[in-house]
């Protein structure tokens, strides 16, 4: 979906509604097409070389986890995927990030459009503090020129349903988003991201600030949403990576050490460094 701010958008059909829960645990297929290809990506903060020549392919409708110790570059790599890295002062990057065959760093690429196609949920829930629940979800639509109130209402509802928040807030849509619990706020942020109908969803430690019940709700949502989205999740929680992802990438000191199916990473990793990290023998 593309529009300038002057153009009124009159139709909108999120592709991720009506999730088939029965397919939640469908195994990864090897035939899945490559949605995103990270090719020889290097990223710097000033002189600090944070991501070192990383290449990996992400399959469509899969969940991929980035794991590794603090400072290994996993969040930086995530931010390279939707051009957020370049927004940091003194940050630079080289390499290619190919989305559906198109390099998002190509000169002709539109950074705002990339961020619409690749949504992001952050570590700490960050609803817009002055906005109601409804307006938090609708914010992106309005910024993108959607004016049709009924359409906005429908998308807000659908997004909240998909984020498993609708039943809890449907009578309080005008109340402030900040009045929700931490877990609800994170699902609100997820709904806000989903409202833009992204093709890829990046999640940066989305449950690290949540209690176990709120965390498991997010994990269940990840399983549902992957039917229609490609998801990349950064997590410090090894068990979470093992539970939710089909592919896992282990990073260390900016390098990609091992990238494989999650079942192989956790049962029989090929690299000794991976084995040491996932079994807590580091340091």
């Amino acid at each position: 979906m593309s529009s300038s701010s002057n153009e009124e958008v009159t139709s909108y059909s999120p592709g991720w509604s009506n999730v088939d829960v029965n397919k939640m645990l469908a195994p990864a297929t090897t035939q899945a097409s490559i949605k995103l290809s990270i090719q020889n990506v290097n990223a710097w903060f000033g002189k600090k070389h944070a991501v070192k020549n990383v290449s990996l392919d992400v399959k469509e409708n899969s969940v991929t986890a980035f794991i590794g110790p603090s400072g290994c570059g996993k969040t930086t790599l995530l931010r390279c995927i939707n051009r957020m890295h370049e927004m940091t002062p003194n940050a630079r990057l080289d390499g290619k990030v190919i989305l559906d065959g198109f390099d998002i760093y190509d000169k002709s690429s539109d950074s705002a459009m990339i961020k619409r196609r690749i949504g992001m949920v952050f570590q700490k829930p960050n609803p817009f503090p002055t906005m109601s629940i409804h307006d938090n979800v609708a914010a992106g639509l309005k910024l993108n020129g959607v004016r049709d109130k009924k359409l906005i209402r429908d998308v807000v509802e659908q997004s909240l349903v998909s984020a498993a928040l609708w039943e809890e807030v449907k009578n309080d849509l005008d109340k402030p988003g900040m009045g929700l619990s931490g877990g609800q706020q994170q699902r609100l942020c997820l709904a806000r991201a989903l409202a833009m109908q992204p093709e890829i969803l990046l999640m940066d430690e989305p449950t690290s600030a949540l209690d176990p019940i709120a965390s498991s709700k997010i994990e269940e949502l990840v399983q549902q949403l992957k039917e229609h989205l490609t998801i990349i999740i950064v997590t410090h929680n090894m068990q979470q990576a093992a539970r939710v992802s089909e592919y896992t990438a282990f990073m260390y000191l900016g390098e990609l050490i091992e990238y494989d199916q999650t079942k192989d990473i956790f049962k029989n990793p090929h690299k000794e460094l991976t084995e040491k990290y996932i079994s807590g023998r580091f340091g």
Binding site: M238, Q239, A242, K267, N268, P269, E275, S279
Partner: peptide
């Protein structure tokens, strides 16, 4: 402890 890899095997 949710052991993995060699520990789990």
């Amino acid at each position: 402890y949710q052991p993995v890899a060699t520990d789990l095997r």
